[in-house]
């Protein structure tokens, strides 16, 4: 395996991005994934397990892992942390009650060694429904400003209308691509 082989492999890897999509149950993770993939979003039931979708976007190959958010499943999230380039955290902007829950789950994820160095994108979902908290309010409530360990972005979006989904994904890809690639 000479330098040319290494470069060839790297060239292929550079174009592959692994994204892990997590969040509490009913946040809309699977809907976002399906919307993004152009699939039907009318009949979506709670994810009992996980989905993996490979999408081509802007010449990048996105491997998106979407894992169910029920409480019983959360302890298994860590099975999917390996070699994650970016974490997409989806928040239900209507779910005021569990916002603290949501904050805690995210905080503990950010402590995780294997997610150190990953980029964080927070989707404040369900902005199309009236009464939704703004992304600003969620940022405050979740104390995002204090995150020093990861590059992050919060963006309001709607999985149903597709609003801002692309913008969010574009940002996370840009951020991942703008750091130099290391093989670990």
């Amino acid at each position: 395996m000479g330098l040319l082989t290494i470069l060839k492999k790297m060239k292929q890897k550079e174009k592959e991005v692994r994204l892990l999509m997590l969040g509490l149950d009913n946040a809309g993770k699977t809907t976002i994934l399906k919307k993004f993939n152009g699939e039907d979003i009318d009949t979506i039931s709670p994810t009992l397990g996980f989905n993996i979708k490979t999408l081509e976007h802007r010449n990048f190959k996105l491997n998106i892992w979407d894992v169910g958010g029920q409480k019983s499943l959360r302890s298994y999230w860590r099975n999917y942390f390996e070699s994650t380039d970016g974490l997409i955290w989806v928040v239900d902007s209507l779910d005021r009650l569990r916002l603290q829950d949501c904050k805690q789950e995210l905080q503990s994820l950010l402590q995780e060694e294997r997610l150190a160095g990953a980029t964080l994108l927070v989707f404040a979902n369900k902005q199309d429904i009236s009464g939704a908290l703004t992304s600003e309010a969620i940022k405050e409530a979740m104390d995002l400003e204090n995150i020093q360990t990861h590059h992050w972005l919060i963006i309001g979006c709607s999985a149903v209308t597709g609003q801002n989904l692309l913008e969010g994904i574009d940002w996370i890809i840009d951020d991942i691509a703008s750091r130099i690639f290391t093989m670990d």
Partner: peptide
Amino acid sequence: RYQRGSRSLAENLKKQDGAGQQGQIGGVV
């Protein structure tokens, strides 16, 4: 890791345009 240019050398040489961000960005470089 954010200071040595992007993953791809060719990308690295294109001008990065940071405009048009609607959300709020943070995190420590």
